[in-house]
Nucleic acid binder design. Structure first.
Length: 766
DNA sequence: GTAGGGTTAG
């Protein structure tokens, strides 16, 4: 590393020494600005060489790198200008490594070579190398300083940009615009405005930057005000304002401005196309698209995106097939479109056929799998993405984390977390919230809280996720502690927060607190009770045995009770063995959702525990007549980097013999400790004496047994079940946690249960 | 031959 740095410096000094006194590299005669000073004589150049250099530039401008290189090789004599033309050509065509090699080979690099190379590093998103080169230059000109200012500005490093700006000896309009843009583009609009107002001779470019800042913040009135006041408007000014109104849904103003504008270019037309598209005006978008005098790939992509957004994939495909030159974005739009329309195979076909992919392509494909429920494929592709060397972006991280959360793959999620840290994205809201949700849903509430604490910025979603996470884990007090922390910040509790808070109270049995929050949340936080809040309250009162109050609340609320509310009441009736109310609730649910198998099971369990076997049978007949299929129960557990799935009485798992033998053994021990199997809990078409047998092999028990055999002792056993855990299994797992001295965390369709030492965090209250 | 503002995809 060091030898390389010294090499640069040595070469630089050699260049200075070799140059004549008029050289821009000679520290005694600094050039103040970019333009050659008027009294210096023009450099003596051979007109022949100038012709060659011009040819190189022309080829490079059209992306013909090979032709440019051929001319360069054939030239009888290379000037530094020829080398620089090649350098900037390679960079503008995206060939960074070629450029770097060429730069190393330049015999007498001058200021322009160095400036170009700094910019090259910036394009390569390698600010450190750019800065190293910058620091090594004994002589800098305004271009050098300006390049660094905008490099920092574009990377969000406003303070660094400011520092460079302050040190810039000969600031020109570009320097000033650079620091203005640094503030505007990094959300410091007020500072930018102060700076802007402190000076009166801004160039049009800077007016435009300021207007764009307001447009991005949807502050259109201020944008318009500046636009009206600016001394000179160019086409960019018009385009910025037009697209501002178009993107914010005001197509009538956009159209008026479009008609008023003195001239239009591709940008103007494309802004109109995408504006119409985003406002669902597909025909207008297409009309403008057809009227456009010229189109570039962005215009085509905007029109394709319009069809994609309306899920008109046939028309999107039609355009895609005929467009003259497709870029990555065109392909990415098609992937996104197919994925969102649920046509994952077509999306994959596009993904496989495209010649070059970027991180967006991978993210779109991963999102397609993830949202389509193909979790395994999503994870597979994420792993492949890493192998392929593609830089994982925030969006793919977010998708994969939510996939891990859905199927509760904690180990996988942790690995993704590790890569996230390595990628150096920091813990902003977007990715941080996904990480938080992953840990919550994977049952690792402590790690969730760690991630929460590490987040550099928290928004309402972060707080809400953490509160709801604690609530679902039965840690009501912790949830309320987080809620109280939240109240001390600037983030206002919203309706989602209050759903979390109320359900925390409900899951932890904090009845009075819950009631209090419910009745004061409007006064305290301006949250009006929605149906979700009432559902929480019915649940809370019901669990606490205040079934009359729950019913009274249902009667008084400003909504018609829905199936979820009746379901909460049915669940409460089951806990408190109130058959009459349970039946009433179930009746209403069956009217609204005749296919909701879970509710038949709940009612059946209620009948069974009350010894009403005749009704259990009747219900069974009813289900058969109505064709209601009980959703098969599954449990799964992650062990040895694999997900192991179990169904009732599973005979497919390779280790089934060991598992069943172990369960027999456990059963004996449990009975010695006083466990009685609740045979009556099962809803099955089996004979009485077989019931105990079936129960013993519920999927969650199999998974727990497998976990004890395979998860190292001391580590918690995490099991996920797709349905609610049955009472017998819940009871059994309590015994198992005591006998085997293990922490067992069970996620069912409703909440988390943390078992240890013979009891559960839900307090048998679920 | 090098540095600044506006359009698409996620």
């Amino acid at each position: 590393m060091f030898s390389r740095c010294n090499g640069f410096t040595r070469r630089f000094h050699a260049a200075v020494a070799a140059s004549d006194p008029r050289s821009p590299l000679n520290p005694t005669k600094r050039h103040r600005t970019t333009k050659r000073s008027k009294n210096a004589p023009p450099p003596a150049s051979d007109p022949e060489v100038v012709r060659w250099n011009k040819a190189i530039t022309a080829h490079m401008r059209h992306g013909r790198m090979a032709a440019a290189a051929a001319i360069f090789r054939r030239m009888p004599r290379h000037t530094t200008v020829s080398w620089n033309a090649m350098l900037s050509g390679y960079l503008s065509n995206g060939c960074f490594s070629l450029a770097l090699r060429l730069f190393d080979a330049i015999p007498n690099p001058d200021l322009v070579s160095f400036n170009t190379m700094i910019h090259g590093h910036v394009l390569n998103r390698d600010l450190a190398s750019a800065r190293r080169l910058f620091d090594q230059m004994p002589v800098k000109d305004t271009v050098t300083w300006n390049t660094m200012i905008s490099a920092y500005a574009q990377s969000g490093l406003v303070e660094e940009a400011r520092e460079i700006f302050d040190r810039t000896p000969h600031k020109n309009a570009i320097s000033w615009n650079g620091i203005l843009a640094a503030y505007v583009q990094n959300g410091r609009l007020e500072v930018a405005r102060l700076l802007f107002d402190s000076n009166s001779d801004w160039e049009t470019v800077s007016w435009n930057a300021m207007i764009a800042g307001y447009v991005q913040r949807r502050r259109l009135a201020e944008a318009q005000e500046l636009f009206d006041r600016m001394p000179e408007r160019d086409i960019v000014s018009w385009n910025t304002l037009i697209s501002g109104f178009a993107q914010n849904g005001d197509m009538s103003v956009a159209t008026r401005l479009f008609d008023e504008s003195p001239s239009r270019d591709v940008f103007t037309w494309t802004a109109m196309v995408s504006g119409y598209a985003q406002n669902g005006m597909l025909e207008d978008a297409r009309r403008v698209f057809d009227e456009m005098p010229e189109r570039n790939s962005v215009s085509w992509n905007a029109m394709i995106a319009a069809y994609v957004q309306c899920q008109k994939m046939d028309q999107a495909k039609e355009l895609f097939d005929v467009m003259p030159c497709r870029n990555v974005n065109s392909w990415n739009s098609m992937i996104t479109g197919y994925a969102q329309a649920g046509m994952v195979e077509q999306a994959r076909r596009i993904f496989d056929t495209m010649s070059q992919r970027d991180s967006v392509s991978w993210a779109a494909m991963i999102a397609g799998y993830s949202q389509g429920g193909s979790s395994e494929e999503a994870l597979q592709l994420f792993i492949e993405m890493g192998r392929y060397g593609e830089r994982t972006n925030r969006s793919s991280f977010t998708c994969v984390l939510s996939t891990c959360a859905d199927i509760s793959m904690l180990e996988c999620g942790k690995q993704v977390h590790g890569r996230l840290v390595k990628a150096g994205y920091g813990m902003g809201c977007f990715v941080g919230n996904a990480l938080l949700a992953m840990y919550c849903k994977c049952g690792s509430i402590d790690e969730a809280y760690e991630a929460f604490e590490e987040m550099t910025e928290k928004d309402a979603v972060s707080w809400n996720t953490m509160i709801a996470g604690y609530a679902r884990h039965g840690y009501g007090k912790e949830a309320l502690k987080v809620f109280n922390l939240m109240r001390m910040t600037d983030t206002r509790p919203d309706d989602v927060t209050m759903v979390g808070v109320l359900s925390a109270c409900s899951h932890a049995g904090l009845v009075d607190k819950g009631i209090n929050y419910f009745y004061t949340m409007h006064k305290d936080f301006g949250v009006t009770a929605k149906a979700e809040h009432y559902t929480c309250m019915i649940d809370l009162l019901g669990r606490a045995g205040q079934l009359d109050d729950a019913q009274a609340l249902m009667k008084d609320m400003p909504f018609e009770p829905d199936a979820i509310m009746w379901g909460a009441l049915l669940g409460a009736s089951r806990i408190h063995r109130n058959t009459e109310l349970g039946e009433k609730a179930a009746e209403r649910i069956f009217e609204m959702e005749p296919d909701n198998a879970g509710m038949y099971v709940l009612l059946s369990n209620l009948y069974a525990t009350s010894g009403k076997w005749g009704n259990v049978n009747k219900l069974r007949v009813m289900m058969r007549e109505r064709g209601v299929k009980k959703v098969p129960g599954f449990s799964w557990i992650e062990a040895n980097n694999k997900v192991h799935t179990f169904s009732v009485g599973d005979m497919l798992h390779p280790e089934k013999d060991k598992i069943y033998a172990f369960l027999e053994e456990l059963d004996m021990k449990m009975k010695k400790e006083g466990y009685v199997s609740a045979t009556e809990m099962v809803l099955h078409d089996v004979e009485e004496e077989e019931k105990e047998h079936m129960l013993k092999y519920h999927s969650e028990k199999l998974a727990v047994a497998f976990g004890i055999l395979n998860v190292p002792s001391g580590r918690p056993i995490r099991v996920i079940k797709n349905l609610r855990v049955c009472e017998d299994c819940h009871n059994a797992v309590k015994f198992i946690s005591m006998i085997e001295n293990r922490f067992i965390i069970l996620r069912d369709s409703n909440r988390f249960h943390h078992f240890h030492g013979g009891s559960c965090s839900c307090g048998d209250y679920w």
